[in-house]
Amino acid sequence: MFDTEFFNLGYLDRLSYQDTFIHRIDPRIKLLSSFMFIVAVVSFPKYAISGLLPFFLFPVLFLALGDIPVRFILKKILVVSPFAIFVGIFNPLLDGQPVLDVLGFTVSLGWVSFASIMLKFSLTISAALLLIATTSFPGICFAMQKLRIPKAFVAQLLFLYRYLFVLMEEAMKIVRAREMRSFGKRGKELKNVVPIIGVLFMRTVDRAERVYNAMLARSFTGKLYSTKPYALTTTDILFIIASAGLILLFRVVNVTALIGKWTIG
């Protein structure tokens, strides 16, 4: 389980360093449009369904233009779904009033709101995943810094990102060594895990010491500089205008209903 998580993380990280149209868009633009997208989706009322459907255009575009494997993203969405399902599933149980007839089946209001939660869930989670799959993490940090997020926090994120993979690998080695000698459940009790975490912790503190040494050796005096000379391109501006426009359009006009009416006549 640890191995899978670790490799998934690495895979997602590698995806973010591809070079496609979507990857080249400025991180600030992608961060802002993702937020607009999420707020727009979440702002739909409790029973909205049809109005949400056009929003799937965005993840589909990101997946297609950014060369992101669909199955990988779907799997990741499934993995995190339990909490939303757990909370949402009470809606059909508690709210059973019938609301509409679909091809002979009566659907209760609770099911409608549950479906709405699940649609919102897929849209918002895929927005987060696709943002990181198409934008390198340092890029996102850079965007945050430009958007006036405190520097101490951004620096913290960058260090965390840098040592995430190093420490995960170290932890994975320890976990593997444990699995090899623990035969099933035994060895995973709390009393055995505490020393493992403790050892990992002490190694981490030692590493921090060495890293600090390396920083001092290169004249670190407590200040972290950044040098990114990014400037927004015309494509970036067009991208944000187009996505903001579409998000607004989909939010205000129910495109699905319009198409439905127009087809049926």
Binding site: C141, L158, R162, Y163, V211, N213, A214
Partner: peptide, 13 residues
């Protein structure tokens, strides 16, 4: 000074 472990030496993203 170049440290033994490049993971300690390379600390930026």
């Amino acid at each position: 000074l170049v440290f033994q472990n490049p993971d300690d030496q390379l600390f930026m993203p």
